[in-house]
Nucleic acid binder design. Structure first.
Lengths: 226, 226
DNA sequence: CGCCAGGTTGATTTCGCTCAAGCAATGTGG
DNA sequence: CCACATTGCTTGAGCGAAATCAACCTGGCG
């Protein structure tokens, strides 16, 4: 597992140090790893399951910013800056998560600069992702954004069926889908209804059937006449 | 100048190395530092002026993602990952910018791990900023987003006048303002008109007069009845 | 002078939000 | 086991915000 994460840059003795300073926890659906405002007590590394990174605004609206998967490290910003966590982290289903204490993280960063560079690459990728979302929020309709989100979720949760169609089991609720594209959940319901009447995607609970993936791709392009 | 930037963590001999691998350039308004798709050829450090970081989508819409000020370092993601630049960087006015070649950057990162951690802290701050923008885009009206943007710009460009009001010289065009809040430029024009009839802010070209800053803060809170 | 980019304004339409009701699945306490 | 709340989702009606399309204005600038 460690091989496929940011910690793969560590040498043998550093792994020993890591092992001595980590503990492993099991979370069940809905359990919180940490919350906004808390002080960082270490880095969380997802071993299995999916973790949702959420932020709340002043009025209590929750926005799902990111999904974290096995291999992802969470919460190191707070360790690095000494600032409290800016997001909530919550297990979406049963999940195994390792916890490495701040002290150990700092020792490892000190011993092996490559770990810091690895975190930097990871953070830069997250920034790139967030900026892409900003561009989409600024230019796409809700319908196009939902289509785009489905395509992204397909990469991880999609399965190709025998007849050439695709199926998808959504990891999140409709409300979360809505917050991910910056829309109300009623609006998401309506768009889903229109996707079904247009034959683009069929929803049943959290299961989605997409006859032709290409039809979703077409949805993203803004309404061109040609 | 170096003292107030990410490079302040360097030691004496590293500064010498830095000096040997850098060159200084002057840009005038509208000139490009680098463009999307180009390979990273080093890190750019803003010495004076303001640099706009933009991203274009597939249809050519430009979104202004970030403003970079003296002390900010740009373009290190591309150096670090080997990927091409994901954004355009363009001087908004006359600007002095230092350029440190990739080779030198890598040597410095190798010599002094603190430089990498500094970049990491900087990138984490950018990510936090981008995520805040995502939350705002998801929950606020265009009017509230424009009010919020004006408050942010006041921090850097605002001046307090004798009568307790504030003035502000906008560094960007109306179109850019619009792209920053994810709206059309016509919409920004109309909101500006409403701000004026409501006595909240008065615009003349790129000059803005804000009688009471607090009125702008009120705009951000969503429409509560109480 | 004509041209053009940047900005404003108007008319109209569309999209998405709000408020509200209703429904199915799930849970809880008596 | 049933009455009853609760939660997540869907659907409808009406409205308001913002996009679109278009005209027009202004200040540079070749």
């Amino acid at each position: 597992m460690r091989k496929r994460s940011d910690w793969s840059v560590l040498g043998q003795d550093e792994v020993t140090l890591l092992a001595s300073g980590q503990s492993s926890y099991s979370y069940s659906a809905g359990e919180s790893l940490y919350s906004m405002g808390e002080a960082g007590d270490g880095v969380y590394c997802v071993c299995s399951g999916t973790v949702a990174i959420r932020r709340l605004d002043a009025e209590g609206n929750s926005v799902l910013l990111q999904l974290a998967y096995p291999g992802d490290s969470l919460g190191y910003e707070a360790v690095l800056t000494g600032e409290p966590h800016r997001c909530n982290a919550e297990a979406l289903g049963p999940a195994n998560v390792c916890h490495i204490r701040s002290q150990t993280v700092r020792a490892l960063l000190d011993k092996n600069p490559n770990l810091g560079l690895q975190f930097l690459r990871r953070t830069a990728a997250s920034l790139d992702d967030a900026q892409d979302k900003l561009v989409h929020h600024a230019t796409l309709s809700n319908r196009a954004k939902l289509a785009h989100l489905l395509l992204i979720l397909m990469d991880r949760y999609g399965r190709l069926t025998a007849d050439g169609a695709s199926t998808l089991h959504l990891p999140v609720s409709r409300r979360d889908l809505a917050s991910m594209i910056g829309a109300r959940h009623e609006t998401v319901s309506r768009i889903i209804g229109r996707f079904e009447t247009d034959g683009i995607a069929y929803f049943s609970g959290r299961s989605v059937r997409i006859p032709q993936v290409n039809a979703l791709v077409e949805e993203i392009r803004p309404q061109l006449v040609g």
